[in-house]
Computed example of a mutant assay.
Amino acid sequence: MPKLLTAIVDDHPIVIEGLKTLLRNEENIEVVGGFCSGEDILSYISTHKVDIILLDITLPDINGMELCLMIKKASVSTIILILSNHTERSIIMQTIQNGASGYLLKNSSVDELRHCISEAVQGNICYSKAVIEIISRPSKNELQGTPRLTRREKEILAMIAAGKTSQVIGQELFLSPLTIDTHRKNLIQKFGVKNVAELVMAANQQQIL
């Protein structure tokens, strides 16, 4: 059986060397190279066949999530496994959406990596144990449940979602822009989000809009 040609992409050369050492004894894997940037791996796969890429999220030039899409566009058959320290559920889900076949944290065991590689080769999506736990935990919005809104807050929320400014909303509701800004801040706080874009997204998810 031919060996799986494997590339490692990480911004830390020491991590690349460590993974090379770990994988050296695997009968079905041949590490063809280590790359420290997105540009380097994209340039390599344009002229060489690579079966599997072990990819970090944090790279100096291209975000690993975006790089997933670029690799898949350049070589649809290449399997991408994310190997990262990022534990945010949204990042994990986004990489899978962008074409990755699995996600492992860097503290995973060699057995977990081996298992994920074999699952990915069979066309399955695979996560390390720690990542499965992160995914199965409900997100903050789900935990909090639907925030209770006053009639006025619902009205203002709908207008914010329609892209109207505090000035315009104030004119339409005969309120000062300052009052609208206060409502806006209160809504952001009630939903536990950081900005208006997240506010609208959370309100849509919870079917308030």
Rank of each mutant, 00 (worst) to 15 (best):
T6G: 09
T6E: 02
T6L: 11
T6D: 09
T6V: 08
T6K: 06
T6H: 11
T6S: 07
T6Q: 06
A7K: 04
A7W: 10
A7C: 07
A7L: 05
A7P: 03
A7R: 01
I8V: 14
V9S: 09
V9P: 05
V9G: 11
D10T: 07
D11H: 13
D11E: 03
D11G: 00
D11R: 02
D11V: 09
H12S: 07
H12T: 07
H12F: 09
P13W: 01
P13I: 01
P13E: 03
I14N: 12
V15D: 02
V15G: 03
V15S: 07
V15K: 02
I16T: 02
E17S: 14
E17D: 06
G18T: 12
G18D: 03
G18Q: 07
G18L: 08
G18M: 10
G18K: 00
L19K: 01
L19C: 02
L19I: 00
L19E: 02
K20L: 05
K20R: 10
T21W: 12
T21Y: 13
T21M: 14
T21N: 14
L22C: 00
L22S: 00
L22P: 00
L22D: 01
L22V: 11
L23I: 15
L23A: 05
R24T: 09
R24S: 12
N25M: 05
E26G: 00
E26Q: 06
E26D: 04
E26F: 10
E27W: 01
E27A: 09
E27D: 14
E27F: 03
N28P: 00
N28S: 14
N28C: 00
I29F: 06
I29L: 01
E30G: 02
E30R: 11
E30N: 04
V31Q: 14
V31K: 14
V31M: 15
V32H: 04
V32T: 12
V32L: 01
G33I: 05
G33H: 03
G33K: 05
G34S: 12
G34F: 04
F35N: 04
F35M: 08
F35H: 08
C36T: 14
C36Y: 07
C36W: 07
S37R: 04
S37H: 02
S37D: 05
S37M: 04
G38H: 01
G38E: 02
E39M: 04
E39A: 05
D40N: 11
D40G: 07
D40H: 10
D40E: 15
D40R: 09
D40S: 10
D40K: 11
I41P: 06
I41Y: 03
I41V: 10
L42I: 14
L42F: 12
L42T: 10
L42Y: 07
S43R: 12
S43Q: 11
S43E: 13
Y44G: 05
Y44V: 06
I45M: 11
I45G: 10
I45D: 12
S46A: 15
S46P: 13
S46L: 12
S46M: 11
S46G: 11
T47I: 15
T47A: 13
T47E: 13
T47P: 02
T47G: 05
H48V: 02
H48A: 04
